[in-house]
Computed example of a mutant assay.
Amino acid sequence: MSALDAVRARHSWSRVTDVAPTREELLTLVAAAGRVADHSSLRPWRLIELRGEDRMALGKAMAKAQGDKEPSPKPLRAPLLIAVVASFRKSDKVPRWEQEAVASGVAHTLSLLLDEAGWGVIWRTGHYTRSKAVAKAHGLQKNEELLGWLYVGGKPVGKKPGRRKSVDASAMLTRMPTKAQKKTK
């Protein structure tokens, strides 16, 4: 399958089965995802693997952030969660936004690789990513921010992935305005 075919075939899977890639399988895909464009090779990202009881600990942290007594069941929706962390580095050349873009690029590339390898994946974000209780549960440092989690599991047989509308590429890809166009605005 070509990269174009893999990207065109990718879908988010909001429901997955209880099987997940092994750590060894994951390491291979993470190594490939880490090849994204990275100005100055800062590697301003890291990933945290959550399996088993780790997901319950996250559920408790989410409950604490929300002021609930019972752990949130959200982390139990997939057997593997991969926390995506922007780990900002000091740099005179690479601004913070660009470092966050690298971390996001790693996450998206990893989601494509997981999908192409046959796994169901969805990238979940939300207000919990900025919660102190959730940051503490992940062991985040002062220079780090949680960008969300890749929920990973098996693709259910007979189920369809989430729907994604087609992109009107001609509307999204524009040209630089000419001098005449700039004067009319």
Rank of each mutant, 00 (worst) to 15 (best):
Ser87His: 12
Lys165Tyr: 09
Lys60Phe: 09
Ala65Pro: 04
Arg89Asn: 10
Arg163Cys: 04
Lys132Met: 09
Ser111Ala: 15
Trp97Thr: 01
Gly120Val: 00
Ser72Asp: 09
Lys60Ser: 14
Gln66Asp: 14
Ile82Met: 06
Val157Ile: 13
Leu113Arg: 04
Gly153Asp: 08
Met56Asn: 14
Pro161Arg: 05
Glu53Cys: 06
Ala117Asp: 10
Ala107Asp: 05
Ser91Lys: 02
Leu76His: 08
Ala57Asp: 14
Ile122Pro: 01
Pro71Gly: 03
Ser131Val: 01
Ala65His: 12
Val134Gln: 02
Lys90His: 11
Lys142Glu: 15
Ala61His: 11
Leu147Trp: 03
Leu112Glu: 07
Lys136Val: 11
Lys132His: 12
Ala65Arg: 02
Phe88Glu: 11
Pro71Glu: 01
Lys69Val: 10
Ser131Pro: 04
Gly59Ile: 13
Leu112Met: 11
Gly148Ile: 00
Glu53Ala: 14
Leu146Glu: 02
Val157Thr: 14
Pro95Glu: 04
Leu150Gln: 08
His127Ile: 09
Val84Ser: 05
Arg77Tyr: 04
Gly153Trp: 03
Gly162Ala: 13
Val106Gly: 02
Leu147Asn: 00
Leu80Phe: 01
Pro71Ile: 06
Arg89Ser: 12
Ala65Gln: 08
Ser131Trp: 03
Val157Lys: 14
Leu140Asp: 07
Gln141Met: 13
Ala101His: 09
Lys165Asn: 13
Glu98Asp: 11
Pro79Met: 05
Val152Met: 07
His127Trp: 14
Pro95Gln: 01
Val84Tyr: 01
Lys142Arg: 11
Tyr128Leu: 10
Asp92Phe: 12
Asn143Ile: 05
Ala86Tyr: 05
Gly126Trp: 05
Ala101Thr: 07
Val102His: 09
